[in-house]
Simulated scan of single mutants.
Amino acid sequence: MKKGLTIFLLFFSVSVFAKNQRDTVRVLFVGNSYVYYNNLAQMIGLITDSMDTKIICRKSTVGGANLGEHWNGLRGLQSKEIIANSKFDIVVVQDNSMWPIQHKDSLFYFGQLFCNYIKSSGAKPYLYSTWAREKTPETQSQISEAYESLAKDAGATVVPVGDSWALARQKNASMNLFHTDGSHPSSLGTFLIALSFIKKITGTLPKKYATVYNYFDRDGETFRIMQLTNEEIQFCVAVVNEIVQ
């Protein structure tokens, strides 16, 4: 009887443990300030804490970096070494925000090199299709088309963040996605970016959201990285569900 009970309890414990396990997706962002502004990597992790799939992010960034600098290891960047020496499921590449408009050939050349390199490491290449600057919304089509063309040629997946931004601006211009410089994201903009990546990677979005997101420093102290209203959250959710498939 005791032996049977022990086996049952062991089976029950293993079953409960397995049920409570979550899938994890390890993601590396190769980019610039459009990644590290407002702690995008940490926000993605925090938002997916409530989901069946947890996204764990790492980043290789420096302000204003382009893919050529990443590829050639300039400005202290070690993106290729990080890809080669780590195990990622997805590597996201993002060029300088102006390169799809001003230096498209460079985007295509180094983007193709990175996509091939990422695939050779066993990861999947994703492209971070960024947004038009606040004063030049008409350039969004150029940016989106450049990344979509690269994705088609390189066998990569596009995350259409810029299209999410364009729709958000069209639906409600009072929802301010921009930092005061008219280029970088506000906290709300970063939240929209995070949801775009989460939807593209997992195929879904969380059912519940916090309005305050805190993170822990190395000493275990919490600090706030974002605070949103329910209206802002639901607005972003609706936009992403419409754009990201």
Rank of each mutant, 00 (worst) to 15 (best):
F12M: 15
S13K: 08
S13A: 14
V14T: 10
V14Q: 12
V16G: 09
V16Y: 10
F17D: 11
F17K: 06
F17M: 10
K19H: 14
N20G: 13
R22E: 10
R22G: 06
V27C: 05
V27R: 02
F29I: 02
G31W: 03
S33L: 02
V35G: 01
N39D: 12
L40D: 01
L40C: 02
A41E: 10
Q42M: 10
M43T: 09
T48S: 04
S50C: 09
T53H: 00
I56H: 08
C57N: 01
C57I: 01
R58L: 10
K59D: 10
S60Q: 11
S60E: 15
V62A: 13
G63S: 12
G64C: 08
A65S: 12
G68L: 07
E69P: 05
W71S: 07
R75N: 15
G76L: 04
S79R: 07
S79C: 10
S79Y: 07
S79H: 05
K80H: 09
A84P: 08
N85G: 11
K87T: 13
D89Q: 08
I90Y: 01
V92P: 00
D95C: 03
N96S: 13
P100L: 06
I101C: 12
F110S: 03
G111N: 08
Q112P: 03
F114A: 03
C115F: 09
Y117I: 06
A123P: 01
K124Q: 14
P125L: 10
S129I: 03
S129G: 05
T130N: 09
P137Y: 05
Q140L: 09
S141R: 13
S144H: 11
A146W: 03
A146I: 04
S149K: 08
L150W: 00
A151E: 01
K152H: 06
V159W: 00
V161G: 00
G162M: 07
G162E: 04
S164T: 13
S164R: 07
A166T: 11
A166V: 05
L167Q: 08
L167T: 13
A168V: 03
Q170P: 11
K171N: 14
S174P: 03
L177G: 09
F178I: 04
T180P: 02
T180S: 15
S183M: 11
H184P: 02
H184D: 07
S187E: 14
L188F: 08
L188Q: 08
G189W: 04
L192V: 00
I201L: 00
I201M: 00
T202E: 00
T202Q: 02
G203Y: 05
L205I: 02
R218D: 15
R218H: 15
D219C: 13
E221P: 03
R224L: 15
R224I: 14
R224Y: 12
M226P: 07
Q227L: 13
L228F: 09
L228R: 06
T229M: 11
E232K: 06
F235R: 07
I243R: 01
Q245D: 13
